[in-house]
């Protein structure tokens, strides 16, 4: 049994496998299928100050090896989360990451202040492509990434801050650096890539929102490349995600420099994806005689 535990910004994860925001709710439903206490952590559905109803349906479509979604940040609001969902997650003894979004800089600061000290980490979603005011505006330019990060950090006394980066930008490494300069304790990436599927009979986009965020197995090579670029650019820890479906996928991100990984779409393809990935990491490390997962973090050597 290799040691799978990792420490990120002083937060202990019993293994580096974290449920990705928006695919796992607040954990209750998946816990009906397996004990989610086996996970390293969970990033919650994106929370906002007020409840949101989200986009019209259909909210999802498929491409080859990928899916597109445009849920549009439907969530019950941060107060309901704190009142009704947090205790359950605490009882599971896993690292709790609150994923948050807002319309304005004040929204981000306000929601961070409400969550400070109540969760293990906060993940700033400045990269949701599916709502006009979902924070994506802040996620594009390095200056605004730094600004919103600074505002969020200023509202936090206790809880470490992750900034989640959008891949739909000129340079994700530059934005990662901007987040670090703004005071981020950690960055996570990638959020979804903006895409479209057309219903040729109706000659309309299939998703009600017209465009949706592309995720799943097919985006993995792009995500690994971006994680690697960001790991070169910043000194703070990096959490990688995008298309991870098995332990070998997770290892690509870890070798490229990610301290931990998040798993999203794979939970739809197989509800047991995450426990299988954790088991797979264990056997891979054992088979390779590696005693601790941190030994292979960032060991990527480039060719030539």
């Amino acid at each position: 049994m290799a040691n799978l535990s990792v420490n990120i910004c002083g937060v202990n994860f019993k293994n580096p496998v974290i449920a990705a925001s928006g695919t796992f709710g607040f954990g209750k439903e998946f816990n009906e299928i397996y004990d989610i206490g086996v996970l390293g952590g969970i990033s919650t559905k994106g929370l906002t100050l007020e409840p949101r109803l989200g986009n019209p349906t259909p909210r999802i479509a498929e491409g080859y090896g990928v899916i597109l979604n445009a849920v549009g940040l439907q969530n019950p609001g941060v107060d309901v989360f704190l009142r009704e969902d947090l205790d359950f997650l605490k009882s599971k003894n896993i690292a709790i990451i609150a994923n948050v979004a807002g319309r304005t800089i004040d929204d981000y600061a306000g929601i961070c202040a409400k969550l400070d000290g109540k969760v293990d980490m906060i993940e700033l979603n400045i990269s949701c492509p599916n709502v006009k005011c979902g924070g994506m505006a802040f996620g594009i330019k390095p200056e605004s990434v730094a600004e919103v990060t600074r505002a969020a950090k200023g509202a936090l006394q206790k809880t470490p801050l992750i900034v989640k980066l959008s891949p739909n930008v000129e340079s994700i490494a530059a934005n990662a650096l901007a987040a670090q300069k703004g005071g981020a304790d950690c960055v996570s990436l990638i959020n979804t890539l903006t895409g479209m599927v057309v219903d040729i009979e109706r000659r309309r986009p299939l998703i009600a929102n017209n465009t949706g965020g592309v995720s799943g197995a097919g985006i993995k090579p792009i995500a690994v490349r971006m994680v690697w670029e960001v790991c070169q650019a910043v000194d703070i820890p990096v959490i990688g995600m995008g298309g991870i479906t098995c332990a070998e996928d997770a290892l690509e991100f870890i070798i490229a420099g990610a301290r931990a990984v998040q798993v999203g779409t794979a939970n739809f393809t197989d509800t047991l994806a995450m426990p299988k990935i954790i088991g797979g990491l264990n056997s891979w490390l054992d088979n390779h005689g590696i005693a601790d997962i941190s030994e292979i973090c960032g060991v990527l050597r480039l060719n030539g």
């Binding site: 695919t23 709710g25 439903e29 009906e32 349906t57 479509a61 739809f268």
Partner: peptide, 16 residues
Amino acid sequence: EERMGCGIGACLVCVC
């Protein structure tokens, strides 16, 4: 009927 993601209530894809 609605298009679904998780099918178990976690992702809020299938709402009415």
